[in-house]
Structures are given as structure tokens and as C-alpha cells.
Amino acid sequence: MILVFAEATSGHFKKAAFEAVTYGIQTANLLGSQCVALTLGKVENAGQLGVYGASKVYNVANEHLANFDSQVYAAVIAQAAEKLGATVVVLSHTSTGKSLLGRLAARLKAGSVAGVKSLPDVSGGGFKVNKGVYSGKAIATYEISSPIKLVSLAGNEIPLQSTGNEVAVESLDVTAPSSRVKVLDVKREEGIVPLPEAVTVVSAGRGMKGPENWGIVEDLAKALGATTACSRPVADADWRPHHEHVGQTGVAIRPNLYIAIGISGAIQHLAGVNQSKVIVVINKDPEAPFFKAADYGVVGDLFEVVPKLTEAVKKFKAS
């Protein structure tokens, strides 16, 4: 049986949860098995996971699950996995899933692979999955040899598939220890898609000359419904907030579309963004290394090109 932990934020699923269930059912099909989903705490409309392929949805309701604590969540998921006889446990490769994966591996004495980007190759009774390594510069095939296998699924890798119908939610009786981590506050930027989840990203670098010029980047992002990002020196100089820094030592992203404006394309920058499906580079220097990693390029002055692109996007969206 494949157990998918479908994570919710403030009681609501994000795309990552549906992707994990889609991955779960496709893995179950390969193994001739079933996919069931687990939700923890109060979750709205948990039965919709059936639409993506969960044949059953379990919920554990317990006051200790109100806030995320990897220790408490892992204890509950491990018990559920044992109780239900799971052979594969699927998590999302998010701040939550990443904090759980290692704990579950230690608890269940199971091999784990973080950030998988392929369905398992189960030929010959094995279990092999691919993941990005060297910050996106290479791909490694991992073999898991333990009876229970653990994976966290990288975002934006598996196209969602609705194959089933809503199912009833059953409660699962497992115990939850109390948390030793106190949440004092949670601060979220409202109204923007966080970078790791963004399907479109508009990113800018030192070519912008200064923070006062970012209006044109924000206008383009707004027209595209994109999230903004930046290169490291831009964040280091406090032109932009640190959470926008993408690259090898910043956030690693894999959107469908990455637009790089006035960024040279240093190897450490590319390492965090080269898994984007389509890359557009706008740079006045035709020799900028980024063009080698790009799908589409515009050689020109960003201060002229970007506003024109914004107009063209607006015109397209209006038509």
C-alpha cells in the first residue's frame, strides 16, 4: 500500500498535496497496489483527494497537530504507516515534507530519497528513483533497498491527473505526543505565490542598477501573475528581500517560465534555476553566459525591453 501524506496549510491543500497523491496512485499502479492519503489536524474538504486517485482518505484529529512540529507529525505518520502496512510513503518536498522525511527514515529504518522527480523504476523487484543533485547540475538515480521506501516529491514535476471521485474521510486512531516547540507567531506575505511554488518567475540582477528601478520588474510580474526573484548580490545589497534570492545558496526553483533580467548567469545562479522548463534571458551583453542556458533571448537594454514586454503581455492577456 502507498501512503501519501497530503499536507495542508491552515487547513487547505496546496497543489503539492494533489501532486503527491497523483504520484502515489501512479506508483500504486506500477506496483499493483493501492494509494491512500493521510491528512492531519483540521482539513477542509479532505475527500477531494479521491479525485486525484486516493482510494481512501484518513484523518487524524488531535489538538497536538494544530501547529506543525516535525517530531509530532513524524510520530503520527510513522504509526499510520505501520498500522496500514504501507510499503511506500510519499511526502511533498516542501519545508514541511523535508523536515519530516529524515525523521520518518530514522523511525521506520527506511531508505529515503528527498526531492524525487520521477516515478519509481520497479523492474526486477527494485525501487529506483531520480532526483536532482549538485544543485541541479546533475541527476542521480537512487536505489532504495529497505522494505519501506520513503520519498519526497519535488514540486512541478508530475502533471496533476484527476482520475477518481471524492471519497469519504475516515478517522484513524493513532496517538500524538505533545509538541516541545512553541509557535509564537507566523508571518506570511499575503497575496503572492511563494517562490518555491510559483509557475512563473520574473527575476532581476545587478543590471537593474539600483532598487529604485524595480517598478518595471514588478509591472511585468504583475502582468504575468508571476512571483519576483533576484540574484544574490541584489539581495546582499538589500535591494530586494533575502527570500527572493535564487541560486545555489538561495532558493532553488523549478517554474514553467523563468525570465532573467540583467543577470549574467553565473554558475551558482544557474544551479538554482536551471530546472525551470523555459528560460528567457534579457541582457544587453550578447556574450552573457546566461544565453547558453536560455530557450529564448533578447539582446537589448532592459530599461527599454522590459516595459515593451509588459505592454505586449497586457495586450495578449486582453485579447
Binding site: A105, K109, A110, G111, S112, V113, K128, V133, G136, K137, A138, I139, A140, T141, Y142, E143, I144, S145, S146, N274, Q275, I279, V280, V281, F291, K292, A293, A294, D295, Y296, G297, V298, V299, G300, D301, E304, V305, K308, L309, E311, A312, V313, K315, F316
Partner: peptide
């Protein structure tokens, strides 16, 4: 024991080459 180990490495597919679009024709890029 080692329960999960890399058995093979590959390099990602190289990009096939950038398609350049004139800076005066952003409608074409869109």
C-alpha cells in the same frame, strides 16, 4: 546499513540553443 544510495549519475539535457528575438518585437516573444 546503507538503505538508499545513488547507483547512477547523468547530466541534464543541454539546451538546444537559444532562439533570439528582436528587442523591438516583444509581441513575437509573447
Amino acid at each position: 546499513p546503507d538503505l538508499a544510495v545513488p547507483v547512477k549519475f547523468t547530466l541534464p539535457k543541454e539546451k538546444t540553443g537559444v532562439k533570439l528575438v528582436s528587442p523591438d518585437d516583444m509581441d513575437e516573444l509573447v
